[in-house]
Design a protein around this nucleic acid. Structure first.
Length: 413
DNA sequence: CCATGCGCACCCG
DNA sequence: CGGGTGCGCATGG
């Protein structure tokens, strides 16, 4: 999906701006990429959106304006120097943090790393728990409240990368999304400091306007729930909020929600994925995807395979201790047929499984479902340039399982 | 005019 | 305190 070339350019640009102490905002990023590589701003913008979706880049609202972060660098906590370099390049460092704990999302850095989606989910949850919406009060101008968080996506309009990128604020010149409203679409809010555990109410639209918001919904939906929510894995409650939010934003597409099958509620919870078209594309979509929902698995389960559908559903994982309470919602998931998984699906799966860093390696190597089925132990252990520990777990607990499951169910193919 | 460099104020853990 | 962020100003081409 995202062109590696662009990924590198954009990440380098973000890093560069950061080192210069200049805010990595859309305008500067587009300008610098154009200057350095000749890429059109629109294209850069489109690629940036993709990176945001992949969580390679995090879109955050910091001090009242939008900033982009190199997810890999979000370090927050101790990072060791070691970063392993993944093939992709140096961006991996962060993940380590992720393992440790996603909870924080703090500061600018944002969210916790890249863990993808699920994590995000939980990350968000975590965050919200502490924080919640609202800080509106003061925030507005921004003080720095640091930012909120996470984000991802973006928003706006559709994104078809190529086609429309334009709509978005890409244009270098003045278009910056104003904090607030206009971009409301995109933005969603979240905030961190404010904290109010319970929640949601305030969050409504108005909240958006205030400062921090995160972009994207992916997370947002989830996030604002009060901590308590975690518990219910089913996520029952969440839906509500989420929906609320969405509606407010108008971001979502209802249809899509429906599309999803049955358990609607859940979906709603996770609306973002489901809901937004954008995301879909990249991720699940391979084809007409019917995704199954995660049936509420309990935490420990790594995969839930639904026989009916025959799908291996990647459920989240546990990364840290297995507590997934939070998440469980995982995206409902991917296409049941591994053969139809795209590179993004694979990366997303591993991120969800708790290996965000390694997921990048899969993505860098362009491993899609078909490739995954062909991978052998040695490929996983040595072909991805990932550390042995995670590689072993990935192979034994995921690759092998997925392959086995696939062949059992689709052997005829 | 534009890209950079960076002091300094803020904020968080 | 240490660390991250980014405004605002200064500098250099």
């Amino acid at each position: 999906m995202s062109e590696p070339k662009y990924r590198e350019w954009i990440l380098d640009t973000i890093d560069s701006l950061r080192s210069r102490k200049a805010r990595p905002d859309l305008e500067r990023i587009c300008r610098m990429v154009r200057r350095r590589h000749g890429s059109e701003p629109d294209r850069t913008c489109a690629e940036l959106e993709k990176l945001i979706q992949e969580q390679t880049v995090l879109k955050v609202n910091y001090k009242g304006s939008i900033s982009y972060r190199n997810a890999a660098k979000v370090q927050r906590r101790s990072r060791k120097k070691d970063d392993v370099v993944t093939t992709a390049g140096r961006r991996s460092a962060a993940e380590e943090a992720s393992h440790s704990d996603l909870s924080n999302g703090d500061s600018a850095a944002g969210p916790a790393d890249q863990d993808d989606e699920d994590l995000e989910a939980d990350a968000s949850m975590a965050m919200d728990s502490d924080s919640n919406v609202d800080e509106a009060d003061e925030s507005r101008d921004g003080q720095d409240g640091h930012f909120s968080t996470v984000a991802s996506v973006s928003s706006t309009p559709v994104h078809c990368p190529l086609e429309r990128a334009v709509s978005a604020p890409c244009s270098p010149s003045g278009s910056r999304p104003v904090p607030g409203h206009s971009s409301a679409l995109d933005a969603v809010t979240l905030q961190k400091d404010g904290v109010r555990p319970s929640s949601l109410p305030p969050s409504s639209p108005t909240a958006l306007t205030h400062n921090d918001w995160v972009y994207d919904s992916t997370v947002c939906s989830v996030e604002r729930q009060h901590p308590g929510m975690h518990k219910d894995k089913a996520g029952i409650t969440k839906p509500v909020t989420a929906s609320v939010v969405n509606s407010a934003l108008k971001v979502k597409r209802e249809e899509s929600c429906k599309a999803v099958e049955g358990p609607v509620t859940l979906d709603q919870c996770v609306p973002d994925y489901a809901a937004r078209p954008h995301q879909e594309e990249p991720r699940n979509v391979s084809n007409g995807r019917p995704m199954t929902l995660p049936l509420l698995t309990e935490n420990g389960t790594q995969f839930a395979k639904k026989k009916d559908t025959g799908t291996p559903v990647p459920v989240e994982s546990h990364v840290n201790g297995g507590s997934n309470d939070d998440i469980s919602v995982k995206k409902e998931t991917m296409n049941p047929n591994l053969l139809q998984w795209t590179v993004a699906d694979v990366a997303s799966y591993f991120s969800d499984a708790g290996f965000p860093e390694q997921a990048m390696a899969f993505r860098s190597q362009e491993i899609d479902g078909k490739s995954l089925l062909l991978m052998q132990r040695s490929d996983v252990l040595t072909g991805l340039s990932i550390r042995l520990g995670p590689a072993l777990k990935i192979y034994e607990r995921h690759v092998k399982v997925l392959q086995r499951t696939h062949f059992l169910e689709f052997d005829d193919l």
